[in-house]
């Protein structure tokens, strides 16, 4: 487990350092994820090593948003009188974005004869 954690943290560290050094507009962990994909492709041994820990983390990904979620409740006051309109804007736009994204994906997949198997 220590080696798996080490591999994951090394990717994150490399991602964070590269993003800062080059001033890239994306979070370090996202670049770290790309680095990890490359590393996993190159080494089946690494894949076997990292798998159990990565699966465990992914299975409980929801847990990791709890601390920030509690923070939202504490900051509810900053929404003030605008809370209602803000919520409606988020609700409307999230529903639209999911619907448009999924319908576009399905339509383009059908047009290009791209089927999943």
């Amino acid at each position: 487990m220590i080696h798996a954690l080490l591999a994951i943290l090394l990717c994150q560290l490399a991602g964070e350092a590269t993003v800062r050094a080059l001033g890239l507009p994306l979070p370090g962990p996202v670049l770290g994820m790309v680095l990890m994909v490359l590393a996993l492709r190159l080494s089946p041994r690494l894949l076997a090593l990292v798998s159990p820990l990565a699966r465990g983390l992914l299975a409980n990904m929801s847990l990791l948003f709890v601390p920030a979620g509690v923070g939202v409740v504490g900051h509810a006051a900053i929404l003030g009188a605008q809370g209602g309109p803000l919520f409606l804007a988020l609700l409307g736009s999230t529903v639209l974005a999911i619907a448009v994204g999924a319908l576009t994906f399905a339509a383009v997949a059908r047009l290009t004869g791209n089927r999943d198997d």
Binding site: Q12, M33, L53, L63, L64, P67
Partner: peptide, 20 residues
């Protein structure tokens, strides 16, 4: 809670597994 919050980074790296 920061120990849990910190794992948001490692879980993002872990998304490499299903991608791969």
């Amino acid at each position: 809670a920061q120990f849990v919050h910190f794992l948001l980074g490692p879980v993002t790296i872990s998304l490499a597994l299903p991608l791969c």
